[in-house]
Each structure stands twice: as structure tokens, then as C-alpha cells.
Amino acid sequence: MRQRSHRPLLGIMVTELNRKLPFGSSDFYEHLTYHGATKGLDVFVFSPNRIDWKQELVRGYTYLSERQEWVMKLFPLPSIIYDRCFFNNKESYQQYRYHVSKLRETPHIRFLGYGLSGKWEVDQILQKDNTLHLYLPETCLLTNGIELRKWFRTRSDVFLKPQGGSQGRGALHIHKIRSTDGISSYHIKGRDAHNQPIERDFKNFDSCWFWLRNLIGMRPYLIQEYLTLHSTEGMAYDVRSLVQKNGRGLWESTGMAVRIGKPGSITSNLHGGGTAEDVSSFLTKEFGDSKANELIATLAMLSSRIPPFLEAHHGRLAELGIDLGIDIYGRVWILEVNSKPGRSIFARTHNEKARTKSIANPIHYAGFLLHKKLS
């Protein structure tokens, strides 16, 4: 059945999953449907691979609140697209590439924002800002074993992470143990591509590199200086700051929360079994009142400075999840910037105001773009 709609359509673009309801985050999209209805927007979820370009129709799913279920229908191409596609690898991206490019080139369709490229490209943009540059850890592309060996000449620890990974998958900490006979051994701790914990010891660099090459395969990786981002109790933690465009098309801070990794984890990601806490109380406990206030001011400054600068060099963005680290010396670091952030931290910290705002803002911004387009 074809959906007839005189109201503007917001299409949530997703990658398909092999299950009955072929997409994740259905609770989030259900809430978006509700907020959309209050603003005169019809919301549906679709995969770009389900578009009939001849008829300009797409098979998608809409949530019927009165029946409390998702229903499949045919829709015309949407006026606005909210990109929530997640690609696990290059092959996955290639499956969707043609359709996504075609949607971008369609004149009457607007995207809320365009997804950021990999971590390396983002790092290279941020390096151009003289202030942001001071908060970025030293980073380079992992091209070969010689490059990694060079890093270990001057340090005992390095951090490796995939160029396009998320949720802590594939992140590794390598520690070099210097011995009296001049041959150093190496200890690796982290998570594999499936987010499973791994820990290995190697008697020399060559055996360590051989194992790493097999683990990493062809995936592009970054080498980064290792930062001691641990609480006084020895738990890995960082601060997730969510910034979004509002109904006036302006950037604003939706909220921040501390993410704490489970014991023994090298990252703080919630998908790895971590927890979330309020920023102010956590930092006060760690650093005391005065230093906590100073840190929060720095976190706020970075949260307001990063979005417009990135957008000026990249193109339109709608929201960003900015991950900020604080080392044991109280120095703030920019760890990662994600253009397709989750928002579960606010539910975990029981911050209902920020949680509601985080869901409503994409709808408000979609309304702004539609109004701007019509006026």
C-alpha cells in the first residue's frame, strides 16, 4: 500500500539488519515519530537499497502508535533525510554507496547532515585550528611495522584504534616491557573487531607485529599516544558531550555525561559494559571543586568550538557526539568526534530533560530546514 501524505516526510535512513524488523534503535525512531507528529512531520524508516528510482518510491516502515507496531508501506522520496546508516566495513558501505550518492544529488531532498569521514580525516581538520590543536593527542596512520617500532623508541606505551571503528571495537593498548638483556617484550590488551576482550604477551617486537597484522588485516588503523585516562580507582573513563542543531538552526549543548569502563577495560564505551555518571559530581570527586569547575569550562569551550569549525571544513552537520578525555594530571584531550551519536547516556544518568531534548532536536532542526527551504 502506498502512503499518501500531504505533510512533509522525514526519512530515517538506516542500514538493514537480517531480522524481522530490519533495523535497530526502534525505540529511538518511535520517539522521533511522536515528536515529528507534533511538528507536522510524517516520519518513516527506510534503507536506501529499497528505492525504486523509476517510480521514485521507497519501501519503508512507519510506527502506528494506536496499534503500537511498525508497519511496512510504500512512500514517496522524503523531503528531509536523517542519516543513521552504520557501516561495519568497506564492503558494507559499497552496497549502499550508489543509492546514498543518488539521494544526495536529488535536488528536492535535504540531508539533516552529512556523515563525517574516518577519525584520521577529522583529526586533520581539527589540527588546523590553533586552539583545538593543543587538545589533540599525537596521532599518525599505521602504515607498517617500521612506523610502530619508531614510536616505541621514545615511549613504552601506544594506543591503536581502527580508522572507522566505534564502541571501542578494535582498540588496543600496547605496553613495551624493557628487559636487562636489551630485548623488550610486549603486552597487548584491548578488544577485537567483535568487541571481545583480548590480552596477549609477546617475547619480541617481530612476533607482536606479526600477530597484530593478522588481527588487523586490511583495516586502516591509527597509532596514537597513550593517555592515562583513569579515575583514582583505576577505571577508564571519558566525557561524552552531545551537541545538536536546534529549531533555529544553531548549535547548542544538549548535555554531557561521564562514561566509565568496566573494571579492566581500556575504553569507557557503554557497549563494552560501562556505566554513566553525572559530570559535575564525578569530576568534583576526582579533582575537587575548583579544578572540576575549570575542567567543565574547558569541556564546554571545546563543545562549542568544535562543531562550527568541523562544519566549515566538512559540510552540513546536524549533531555531534564529542568524546573528551581527562588524564590523571587534569589535562583535557579531544579523543573522537562522531556525527551519528547515540543518546543512551542520558537515560543511564536519569537526565530526562537532556534525553527528551536529544530526541526532539533532530525534528526541530528538520523543521528549520523545511521552513528555510520554503521561505
Score class of each variant (00 low, 15 high):
Leu103Phe: 04
Pro22Ser: 12
Glu66Gln: 14
Leu310Cys: 06
Asn214Asp: 13
Leu374Asp: 12
Lys119Thr: 07
Leu370Lys: 02
Asp206Ile: 15
Pro107Ala: 12
Leu317Cys: 12
Thr139Leu: 01
Asn88Gly: 11
Ile174Gly: 05
Leu295Ala: 06
Lys373Asp: 04
Ile306Ala: 00
Ile326Thr: 07
Asp278Ala: 13
Ile223Ser: 01
Leu64Val: 10
Lys161His: 03
Arg149Glu: 15
Pro162Gly: 07
Leu136Gln: 00
Ile216Pro: 06
Lys373Tyr: 05
Tyr365Ser: 06
Gly325Thr: 01
Leu250Asp: 12
Asn49Cys: 13
Asp83Arg: 04
Thr275Arg: 03
Leu320Gly: 11
Gly24Val: 10
Gly182Cys: 08
Arg240Ser: 04
Arg316His: 09
Pro362Met: 12
Phe282His: 15
Ile363Ser: 04
Tyr34Ala: 05
Thr106Ala: 02
Leu229Met: 11
Ile12Asn: 07
Gly272Glu: 07
Gly321Gln: 13
Ser92Met: 02
Leu227Met: 15
Asp289Thr: 15
Gln95Val: 08
Val100His: 10
Ser231Ala: 07
Lys54Glu: 11
Lys119Ile: 03
His31Trp: 02
Phe152Cys: 00
Leu77Lys: 04
Gly273Cys: 01
Phe87Trp: 09
Glu252Thr: 10
Ile80Arg: 02
Glu56His: 03
Tyr93Ser: 03
Asp181Phe: 12
Arg178Met: 07
Thr38Ile: 05
Phe287Glu: 09
Met256Arg: 11
Pro8Met: 02
Ala360Cys: 08
